[in-house]
Structures are given as C-alpha cells and as structure tokens.
Design a protein around this nucleic acid. Structure first.
Length: 418
DNA sequence: CGAGATTCATGTGAAGTATACCTTTAGGCTTAA
DNA sequence: AAGCCTAAAGGTATACTTCACATGAATCTCGTA
C-alpha cells in the first residue's frame, strides 16, 4: 500500500523532472539573464567608439576628460562602459603607474544613499577596509586620499546611476570628488557618470556640471528592429533550435520598444515567456506566452512592492484601496458618478484604520510623502490638482490591475491583521 | 461684467528629534606562562 | 603580560515630526460701463 503510494509519487515527479531535462526549451538560460555579459554589443558601435576615444588617454597615464553618459534604462550604457573598462585594462601595459578602474553602482542597496557608503565601497574596491558605519565622513575621505597617495596610479571612477546618489545626497559629494585632483600629487582621478535621467546634469551645481560634464554621450533607445536583432543573437545561444514560433521575437521587441526601447525588458520578456511555456510543457514558445509574460512581469513587481513595504506604507495603500472599493460600489449603484480620491480622504480613512489596528497615526505631512512614494513606484497615479476655492491636493488613482486587486487586498489584510 | 484680491487644503522644503545601530576606545577582569 | 569582555563615547541611518512658506484656480469684491 505504502509502497504503491511512493511509486505513484515518484512517477509524477519523474515526469516533471523529465520534462525539464529532456523537453527543455533552453540551451543556456543564463544568456537571457540580467547579469549576463555578452561579448559583443550590437548597435552601440558609435557610442562605444566615442567613449573609448575619450577615455583612451588614460592608457598613456594622462588624465582624461570627465565623461557623462546619458540614456534610458536598457539602452546598453552600463554594458558598453563595462566593456570598455575591460578592454582598457587588457590593453594597459605601463609598469611605472598603476591603472585602476572602479565600477560603482550607486543604486545598489548596500552602496546607495549616502556619501559615506559610496566612499566605503570605493575604498573596499581599492583593497582596503572601512567600517560600515561609525566613522565621521571626513575621516573616510582622509583614508581615501591616503590610499591614493600610497603609490602613483591613475584612477578611473565609474559611477553608475549617479542621479540616484545625488538625489539622496547633495551634489557636494561630486564637487568634492572633482576637486580632489588638486589635492593629490601622485594620482589622477577621472570620473565617468552614468545616468538615465536626461535632466540630471542641469540640476547640478554649475561648478560640478562644468567639470563632470566635460564630455557627454547620449545613448539613444533601441528601435524595434535593433531590439529584434539583439533578441535574435541572444536567442540563438539561449534556446534549442526550433522552439521559437514565428513572430515571437518581433512581438517581444515591439512590446519593449513601446517601453522606450528597453533591451532589458525585451530579454526579460523572452525569458519569462519561455519559462511559462516550459512550465506548461509546451514544445514551442508561442505568441500567447508573451502576453502572459508581460502581465506577469507587471504583477510580480506589484506583489514585490506591496509585500516588502513597511507597515505604514501598507496602511496608507490599504486606505486608498478601501476608498477605491467604495467608489466601485457606488459606481455600480448610481451609474456614472465617480468620487475622485484626494489626499484628505485618504488621510481620514488612514486614521480610522490606525485606530482599528492600534497603530500610531502619522502626520499628514508624512502620509503625503508616502503617497508620493507610491506614485513613484507606480502603485498609484497621483497628480496635483487645484480645486480652486477648495484648495490644492493630489488626485489619486489606483493603478493596480483589477485581476490582482483581490490578491493584493488579501496580502494587505493578512500583513496588517485587520 | 471683468480684473484683482482672497481663500482653501495641501504641496513642499528645511530643519529638528527619536531610535536603532555601528565602531573605537579604555578600563577591568581572566588566563596562561 | 596578553587576551578578552564590556560599557561609554561618538558617529550615521532611518523614519518621523514641526514649522513655515508656496500654490493655483474657484470664488468673492468692487470699480466701471
């Protein structure tokens, strides 16, 4: 009896394993993943050449112009710069001075947010240590300078997502960095800033702008054809022959092109489509999986945010959902009349919710910021409107798809113990 | 009736506060030779 | 004497709060036709 049961179970699992082992659509899934580093970067030759020619003097040990690289997400900025970094290091031969190229992503959680942490990361990459917290910032600077003065070297600092850093800190950080050169006798620092905010440079202090933006390069978005080409190159390595149905690449490319030509999005779309197809035991990746993948990406993002958000954030979100539900009900009852949701409404509802859940009530000021955050991450759509005599406020629209509203609501109730 | 002044409900910015956490430092205690 | 532990001191990060000022169109006011 018991043996039978196990046998049945084994049989079922074997089937699952078999389907993954034999029927796999993937040849090499890694090729489609975000951290894959391709050995050539299509359609970016012009930009790569530009960057390379600006940075080339560093091979002679000269200081190069500071460089600023713009471009929306998924336009190959990071990839291209990293590629050039590798090439430079490969070519560098001079013995008497050392060449060091540091790549720092200012957006990564462990690095981001403070001048201190960025410096700490730089120092760590230079091969020294500094405590994660506890030291005054100027001491960290001193340590940085000390390391640089140890020996003659050229330093190229690549700061990715630099706008994130400056938004949190002030641009005085960049100012300090650009000025450091005059204090150093043996070492030259060159900066490469990467940002996807096109207006970023304008918002900087003029002194910083002129020194950081000595050279500028713009990475324009890929168009649908280029995206398709990229997908094609990668899919040849990623998939087994013949698993892609006609038009799949085109559709992925088209979707991603719609999102400002984001290549990362295109690749994600393709990979997730394939995963979905595989899970359903399909031998081919057909068009319908792309649509599924597309909505799955959106949904997962929402669940992620909602689930990991801090309690107060969840409470406020819950209030908005409550109000929205009320509106839906009214809509069906009374026809066309829709109450718009404003900050004040949300705050009132939120206060009630706090009483129910015995949570401390935050000030309206703070709740306003939380609402702004939700707008930022795309959970809601909030626009500032002036209602004339009735003041000025944000009009809030929920932008969670209806199909997952229930589930989001469920997660919230569970986490908030309502 | 129309131009300007008012007004409302909040947006927004700066600065301050509380709490949690971190390292360094110094002093006292333990331990092994 | 060396090593270890602990608490105090001095720092940062985070999540708020407080205070103060900014906003912009509906509405009010008042001079004018």
């Amino acid at each position: 009896m018991a043996g039978n049961l196990v046998k049945i179970k084994m049989g079922r699992l074997d089937k699952i394993f078999d389907s993954v082992e034999n029927g796999s659509l993937f040849k090499d899934k890694y090729v489609l993943q975000a951290n894959y580093f391709p050995d050539n970067i299509p359609h970016r030759d012009k930009q790569i050449d530009q960057v390379a020619s600006i940075l080339a003097p560093i091979l002679r040990g000269d200081r190069t112009s500071n460089l600023f690289v713009y471009g929306l997400t998924g336009t190959g900025k990071t990839l291209s710069v990293k590629y050039i970094k590798d090439q430079l290091l490969k070519r560098y031969k001079k013995e008497d001075t050392k060449l060091r190229i540091l790549y720092i992503n200012c957006k990564l959680k462990k690095v981001s947010d403070t001048e201190y942490r960025i410096l700490a990361e730089i120092i760590k990459q230079l091969g020294s240590e500094v405590p994660a917290t506890g030291l005054p910032t100027d001491q960290v600077y001193a340590k940085f300078v000390e390391i640089l003065e140890e020996e003659k070297q050229s330093l190229l600092l690549i700061l990715d997502e630099i706008d994130q850093a400056v938004k949190k800190i002030s641009d005085s950080f960049l100012y300090n960095l650009t000025r450091l050169n005059s204090e150093l006798s043996k070492t030259q620092i060159s900066l490469v800033g990467i940002s996807n905010d096109l207006k970023f440079l304008d918002s900087l202090d003029p002194r910083v702008r002129s020194s950081l933006g000595e050279e500028e390069i713009v990475f324009s978005p890929y168009n649908a054809l280029q995206l398709k080409d990229i997908l094609k190159k990668r899919s040849e390595r990623a998939f087994n022959k013949g698993v892609l149905e006609e038009g799949v690449l085109e559709k992925c490319a088209a979707y991603a092109a719609r999102e400002h030509g984001d290549a990362r999005r295109a690749l994600d779309l393709l990979r997730i489509s394939a995963e979905l197809a595989e899970r359903e035991g399909s031998k081919k990746i057909s068009l319908k999986y792309i649509d599924m993948a597309n909505s799955k990406i959106d949904k997962d993002k929402i669940f992620d945010i909602v689930e990991s958000a801090p309690r107060q954030f969840q409470l406020v979100l819950n209030s908005i959902i409550n109000l929205n539900k009320g509106n839906q009900a009214q809509k069906t009852l009374q026809g066309t009349k829709i109450n718009r949701i404003f900050t004040g409404d949300v705050y009132n509802n939120y206060q009630n919710l706090c009483e129910q859940t015995k949570t401390e009530i935050l000030t309206q000021r703070r709740v306003g910021d939380l609402i702004a955050e939700m707008d930022m991450v795309g959970l809601i759509n909030a626009t500032v409107v002036s209602k004339g005599r009735h003041g000025r406020t944000r009009e809030i629209k929920l932008s969670i798809p209806n199909q997952i509203m229930e589930k989001v609501s469920g997660i919230l109730s569970e986490r908030l113990m309502i």
